[in-house]
C-alpha cells in the first residue's frame, strides 16, 4: 500500500494524540489506535516503511510504529 497515504494517516493520528495524551504516552496511544482500526496489510506496510527508514513519520508516530513492530515480532514468535 502506498506509503505516503499511510504516513499521512499516521501523522494525523499523531497530531490528535499530541494534545490528548499524557506526557510520554502519545506513542502508545497512537499505536493503540492503529492496532484497533487499521487492517493487517496497512500495519504491515507502515512497519515495513519504518524498517526502510521511516521517512516522514513524526517522532511520536515513529515511536508508535516501533511498538506495533515489536508486537508483530512477538506475535510471530509466539
Amino acid at each position: 500500500m502506498d506509503a505516503d497515504y499511510l504516513i499521512k494517516m499516521a501523522n494525523q493520528i499523531g497530531a490528535f494524540f499530541h494534545g490528548e495524551s499524557a506526557p510520554g504516552q502519545a506513542p502508545a496511544d497512537i499505536a493503540g489506535h492503529i492496532e484497533r482500526f487499521w487492517d493487517k496489510r496497512m500495519k504491515a506496510a507502515i512497519v515495513a516503511h519504518l524498517a526502510a527508514g521511516g521517512h516522514g513519520l513524526e517522532p511520536a508516530v515513529r515511536g508508535a510504529v516501533e511498538i506495533i513492530a515489536r508486537a508483530q515480532t512477538a506475535k510471530a514468535a509466539s
Partner: peptide, 18 residues
C-alpha cells in the same frame, strides 16, 4: 480478530493490487 479495510482503504488496496 483483526479489523478489516475501510472504504478508502479498500480503494488504496485495490490500487496496490491486494
Amino acid at each position: 480478530g483483526e479489523p478489516g479495510l475501510r472504504i478508502p482503504n479498500m480503494f488504496e488496496a485495490a490500487l496496490d493490487g491486494s
